[in-house]
Structures are given as structure tokens and as C-alpha cells.
Nucleic acid binder design. Structure first.
Lengths: 347, 347
DNA sequence: CACAGGGTTGAGAGCGCTTCCATTCGGTGC
DNA sequence: GCACCGAATGGAAGCGCTCTCAACCCTGTG
């Protein structure tokens, strides 16, 4: 490893000089070496090595107009953002995919409503080539910002302003929430359960709504007393379970919209001595690491590949950027990733 | 808001032309306007506004040699990284501080050992002005990388190769783990507890070791059977508690190295019908949101300002960068942030 | 009334890189 | 052996910005 000369790093100019070629040729080699004869390629590469040359990113960006970075905008006002393993896995997937394409991840956390101005400025400033953002509420200013800034953006989770799952107005990646819910509820039904309740997530999240829709797809004309609303947290799940038991002591199954709430529900059932799955069968959603397998009893749930969704978001975006650059290929479509039922002991 | 002309954004040149000044003057105004007479300032500002001018970041970086971005390197191989509220809060603090200084956060996740090469290349590539990294294990290659790349770096948590808390070889921010532990244990002692056990964290984390040292500071010559080792998780805390009860059924207090383990310990005590705090008093560490207040009974614990630590890390780094630029000020020192005992019901 | 001097402004030189375009090179067909 | 053609190479023009330095203006002073 060549020591870093004090102060200035070697430039392409220096490499070219050392290799005895022009700056243009050196540049070609550094960028893949197409159309340069082998011996010259080798000479340049050697010079790069000897000098410890590293391209100056700013100079390159200045002329290519590409930054090699994408923004990940997280606008969740909640604290949950990072604590939520959901996000964490998604980010992991994004990071892996970006890394594989030599693209950097710039994290933009929105702390308050005033931050959107800053975000807008940043996105417009040519700092990044594209953006990834997470499921948004109806009045979220982000789409307008990215559109105005001309920044290609892929969303994680169906944005709430899209009419239906599959809506193509804006590219997004989401799990097949509705289909997964359908399979889960159908499974409970096939088990012979007749009074299948549902603990849903917050109605302003499309994933919660889609899962509820899936539940309703199977149980048309379901009695509203069988549906309770939670907040995707353990506590809210426990509360909703207690509420359901009060309203409908006769229920014999619950499809819970996520594993966290399901674990809360299980706790309540255990406390009341209600046997799972004998008296009440439970199916969760997410197949969350460190939760679904650890509950008592282990949770039957709907698996979705969260990290894969992250990867997919990144891949979609990168593909779109590539298309912008090369001018060929079609606009990225949204992707709905499959879900699968994982049978454990709770149902 | 001016519509974005198709393709190219307006340049400083355009702004200057519109305002009827030279590019140099326009540049001065955009960068604060020092030494430019009021009327000209206004004209330029108006032109900026009308054109919707946004400075080209790459061009600016090319000449100033500052990127306005810092890397946050997260090298935890564990999944815990993001799920851990600890990190999440720290990142929040970092993000807030950076944002306040118009600096961007580039997230570098290390997925495997091979990634260090990529990280090294990135840090050397002049993409960022500095780096923030989290508590490292002894053989972590990161310090060497940042040193060679000449990238100022501030660490979160005392790096394990530093001899002692307070070691100034490398700037870091850490809570006063040892002092906090001392206060906690002393408190238990003042309560009249005589057999105070300890559930420690993993020995390769300095925070765990420092807390253990604090415990030992108060309880010199403590019986080793009173000390059990956990892994900073709920489950490991429960296991350690069970182990301690087996070894020392006579214990009357436990200082637990973090709240997560403390909640596991509480569960075990509850299951065995041991009254807290009457029979066994418990003190945790971290005062973790959503944990310490929610346990049964609520946890007496040592509070540390995690988000504040994040802010401080960023501030230290930014100050260092500023110093590098202006050439005055002293090298950043490490900072140990204070901890305070929060009395709740468990002790 | 000329001149010194501080404060403003503009001209222009780069920052390091990519890429167009002209040039040169090596080889082929006649 | 020569014209000719595609491929390889080099020269040079910027990309958009900052910043030095020289030119300029104006005021105050001798």
C-alpha cells in the first residue's frame, strides 16, 4: 500500500504521466478500459497501483452528472423507525443491493414537518441520483418534492394515495398483504374455525388495510364485532385481544395483522387460560425474526421477505436510473412480493 | 416556484447575468454575501429566486475540497444494529446535529469482513469529510483505515483498545458507565442490601466492562459467585438471573448492566414469586425508552442521554473538521457524558 | 485639487475529470 | 507496394464553482 503523500492525492494526470500515456487514455482505463490496447491498460493499471490513485469523485460527478448515491428518506415521525426490525431489515436489503452496485446510501431522516424544505433542497441539489422512501400518508409532501426535483423515486410499501394494490402511478415494492391475509384466513377456515376474528393495524397504513381487505375477501359479511383495531405494537395487540374476548367470548380463531400484536394477544390468552390453538387458533403476519418463533406457542404466521423487498426497491431504482442514462428499457413497474404461510403451533 | 427548465439547471453564470453582476459577486452572495453592497446582494438574491438556482454541489466540492457529508460506519455484525434502540437513538442524535450544520449522513453498513475494503476505498475517495463509528472490538480494522485515509473520526463508545476510560488517543463519546454503575451499587448498599449481585454484559464490550468495574469499585473483594454474565438481551438476563438464584439464593439485590437484561431478570423473579424490591432490589442501566418504565415493577435504573451522545459525536467531529479548515482550535477531546440514577419502584 | 487608502467588483485561473474530435496507427485489398 | 479504413490514441474543451489578484470607485486628507 503506497503511503499517502502529504496533502494532495495523485490525480489522473499523474497516473497518465507515470504510465506514459495521455490523460484521456488513463481515464479510459480507469473506467473499464474499453478500446485501449492491452499493454497500455496494464501500464496504466500499474501506475494506478503504484501511486495509490483514487478517482476524485466530485470531479467525476461534475462532468458525468451522476453522483453514485441515492437517498433513503425516512419520514416516519414515530420513534419506531429504527427500532422497528421491519425498517432495519429493509435498510439492510437496500444497503446490500446498493453496495453491490457501488452506490452509496445517504440517509435523510425527517425529524419534523419543517425538514421537508431541507429535504427538498437536498434532493434538488444534485447530491443523489435517486431516492427511496417508505410508505407515506396521504398528504405526504415527498412525492411532490421528488417529482419537482426530477428525482426518480421508489417507495417501500404501497403509498396510501394509490387507488389499489398494483396501481402503477408510482413505482413501489410491497408484500402481497391482501393475498397473504387471504391465505391465512382461509387456512383458519379450513381448520374448521367458524368465528374468526381479526386484530388489525392502524388504518392509516396501507399494509394494515390490505390485510384487513384480505380477511374480508374470505369472510364476506363478517360481523364487525369480530374486528378490533391495534397499533402494530405488542401492547395494542394485547389490548385488542382483551377487547375481542369481551365482545365475542365465543371466537375460535384470530388472524392478527402482525406478529408483534399476535404476541400480545397470545399473552392475554395465556393469562386467561385459553388454550392455543385448541380453543383459539392464532395466525400472525410478518414472520418476524426473534418474535414468531419465540412466542408460546410458536406462531403460525405469514412470511414475507423484508430484506428482499429492500433489495428490490434498490434494484428497481437502479434499473430506472440506468434507463434514464442509456435511454432504453421501460419505466419501472411496481412489484408485489409473494407471501407464504408458515405453519407453527399456534394454528 | 419557478418551473424547472427542461434538462439543465441554472448555473451561477446565469444568476450573475440576470443580476447584472460578475460570477464572482454572485458566488459571494450565495455564500453569505460578505463584502458585497446591499443593493447588489438583493439583486443577486432576486435572480437566484427567479431562476430557482441551486448550487451544484460537485462543482463546489471540487474546488473547496469539502463534501459536506460525513460517513456513519456501522460495523456490528449482529442483526441488533438497527433493532437496537440504542443505535437508533444515537443515529437520531447524529442526524439532528448534522442536519443543523447542513451536513449529510452517509450510511456505511458493514455486512461482512470483505466490506472493509470497500469502506476503505470509499473513505479514501473523498466522498466524506469525516466519519463516525461505533464501539469497536480490539482487532477492528477501521481505525487503521480512517487513519490511513486521513479521515477524522469520532467513535461512539470507548474503543476497546483504549487503555482506560478517558484515554485520549482517539476521540470518542461514551457515557460514564463506571461512575453510573458506582452510583447504582452504592444506592443499593445505602438501602441496606448486603449481598448485591451483578448481571454483566458481554465482556468484549467496553460498556459492559466499565459497568462491572464500577460495581467492583464499590464492592471490593466481591464474591465471584455474585457475578453472572449476560448478553445484553432479555433472554440472557433471565438466564443469568436464574443462574444467580441457584448459586446464591440469599442475594438481596442485583445491579443489572442494562435494562433489557433487567426486564428478563424481573420476569424470572416474578415467576418464582420473589418480591421486588422487598426481597430482591433491582437496578438496571440505560433507562431505555419503552422498557424501564414498562416493567413490573417499574425499573430503577441509570439514565444516560443516548441521543445526546449521538449529537455530541457529531458535534465533536464537526468541530474537528472546522479546526482542520480554519487551522485554529485544539484537537477534539473525548467526552464522557454524565449518568444519573432514576429511582422507580424496583429498588 | 491631487493623492492615499480602504472597500467593492470583475477577470480569469484553475479544481480533476470525461469526452468530442482530430490525429495517428496498424492492417487489408487491390 | 500504395491507397484506404477502422481502431487506438492524444489534444483540448469544458463541467460549475471558488478565490486570488488586479482594477476600480469613493471618501477623506494634505
Amino acid at each position: 500500500m503506497p503511503e499517502q503523500s502529504p496533502g494532495s492525492r495523485p490525480t489522473l494526470e499523474a497516473v497518465a504521466a507515470r504510465a506514459g500515456v495521455s490523460r484521456a487514455t488513463a481515464s479510459r482505463v480507469v473506467n473499464g478500459g474499453d478500446g485501449v490496447r492491452k499493454p497500455l491498460v496494464d501500464k496504466v493499471l500499474q501506475a494506478v497501483d503504484e501511486l495509490g490513485y483514487i478517482p476524485n469523485h466530485a470531479a467525476r460527478t461534475l462532468v458525468t452528472r451522476r453522483t453514485g448515491a441515492v437517498a433513503v428518506v425516512i419520514a416516519e415521525p414515530e420513534i419506531r423507525i429504527f427500532s422497528d426490525p421491519f425498517f432495519s431489515q429493509q435498510i439492510r436489503g437496500i444497503s446490500k443491493e446498493l453496495t453491490a452496485h457501488d452506490t452509496q446510501l445517504v440517509l435523510l431522516l425527517v425529524e419534523g414537518p419543517g425538514d421537508f424544505d431541507r429535504i427538498a433542497r437536498y434532493l434538488s441539489g444534485g447530491h443523489v441520483d435517486g431516492a427511496l422512501a417508505f410508505s407515506l400518508h396521504t398528504d405526504d409532501p415527498l412525492p411532490a418534492i421528488t417529482r419537482r426535483a426530477g428525482i426518480p423515486t421508489v417507495y417501500g410499501g404501497r403509498p396510501s394515495w394509490t387507488a389499489d394494490p398494483g396501481d402503477q402511478a408510482v413505482p413501489y415494492v410491497d408484500a402481497d398483504n391482501r393475498g397473504g391475509a387471504r391465505v391465512a384466513v382461509q387456512y383458519l377456515r379450513d381448520l374448521g374455525r367458524e368465528r374468526i376474528a381479526h386484530i388489525g393495524g392502524p388504518p392509516d397504513q396501507t399494509s394494515a388495510m390490505d390485510r384487513l381487505d384480505g380477511y374480508r375477501d374470505v369472510l364476506i359479511d363478517v360481523d364487525p364485532t369480530l374486528v378490533a383495531e391495534g397499533g402494530f405494537t405488542v401492547e395494542s395487540g394485547a389490548r385488542a385481544m382483551a377487547e375481542l374476548l369481551e365482545r365475542r367470548p365465543d371466537l375460535d380463531a384470530v388472524f392478527v395483522a402482525n406478529d408483534l400484536m399476535a404476541s400480545g394477544a397470545l399473552r392475554v390468552l395465556r393469562e386467561r387460560g385459553i388454550a392455543v390453538p385448541e380453543q383459539v387458533a392464532i395466525v400472525g403476519f410478518d414472520d418476524m425474526d426473534g418474535v414468531a418463533e419465540e412466542t408460546d406457542p410458536p406462531l403460525t404466521t405469514v412470511n414475507q421477505d423484508i430484506e428482499g423487498q429492500g433489495r428490490l426497491m434498490a434494484r428497481l431504482l437502479l434499473r430506472g436510473l440506468d434507463r434514464d442514462r442509456t435511454g432504453n428499457g421501460s419505466a419501472p413497474d411496481s412489484v408485489i412480493t409473494p407471501t407464504t404461510l408458515v405453519r407453527r403451533a399456534s394454528a
